[in-house]
Design a protein around this nucleic acid. Sequence first.
DNA 1: TAGTGCATGTAATGCGTTACATGATTTC
DNA 2: GAAATCATGTAACGCATTACATGCACTA
Lengths: 177, 177
Amino acid sequence: MANAVTPVILGLLSLGARSGYDIKTTVDRSTRFFWAASYGQIYPELRRLEREGLVEGEDAPNGSRPRRIYRLTAAGREELESWLRSQGQLLIEHRDELLLRMFFADALPRDEALILVETRKRIFEEVLETLHGIDDMPGEDPQFVDLVLRWGIAYTEWETKWCTEQLERLQGAAATA
Amino acid sequence: MANAVTPVILGLLSLGARSGYDIKTTVDRSTRFFWAASYGQIYPELRRLEREGLVEGEDAPNGSRPRRIYRLTAAGREELESWLRSQGQLLIEHRDELLLRMFFADALPRDEALILVETRKRIFEEVLETLHGIDDMPGEDPQFVDLVLRWGIAYTEWETKWCTEQLERLQGAAATA
DNA sequence: TAGTGCATGTAATGCGTTACATGATTTC
DNA sequence: GAAATCATGTAACGCATTACATGCACTA
């Protein structure tokens, strides 16, 4: 995989032919929660993948508005499957500024520190609404696409639950202190 | 906050004076799970923060081996607190290649797709061991530092539990199909 | 005395995001 | 007819990682 968008492009095309614009739109509704992608990566990579023979582009203009949809070639599907089966080190990288703030919350008075936990809870509640909105969208998703959406909802619910529990615990401790 | 390491540096110095090397070592045992930092960021930023008067460096060589430890100034503490209290958009960004693979697992035969879930479970079990190792390290942590470590352990346990449940569900579904 | 850990530092590299440019089509 | 959406594309920018350079101190 040449770069970070490569598997996203091959993967999304395995679910159906799409334009670069479609890929970006789909990413923004699905993988962006754990794997983002921008136009600046997608368009150059599509052309590179076509040169390499992993995808095939076809002009499909809407009237005189240009449009090019890509489909996976046999070689592209093989490449995708080989990535899915690969054993190497897989990347997990989180940047979570809310956690970072909680980590240093000892520098604040206790009541203000607790607000940070409340804020985290509120933000995940908002994410949960977004995810339910996606879940309610019409159309059947492939099984594992759906599985990952379930994961997102379950994870987000877990986060809000954790915040609630910790707030109770910390506030309880304050009462008995 | 000028860049991504700034809050980490100010935050860690709020817990005690440290050298750049110490900061990197501490980050690698703590925040790196949700906020990484490299030497290439830390050393230049320490000097910038000193120029700005947010930290104060003092030479503290070990024999003839040079060493410089930094402490937070009053201005630095204010900057940290103001960041902790800031209301703006806070960044949450995940890159999780294991989830990405699960998302596209429909491209594989079912039994191989399930292996991806098993792999995810195994990897989080390994992370859990790492975290227990950190937890077992001697020394008292400040309350919120400890809270975030608890978070890490609880989150990782949740991940393994989720994988176990989904494997059971998916294997059960296969049996009745 | 060889290897590991302590300690600082930077240059090169690689990469992704942001911002901008352009223009057609659909919707209100 | 204005605004939003569809659609493609790239140049500039910012930023973090990687890799390298250097050298002392401790320990097996």
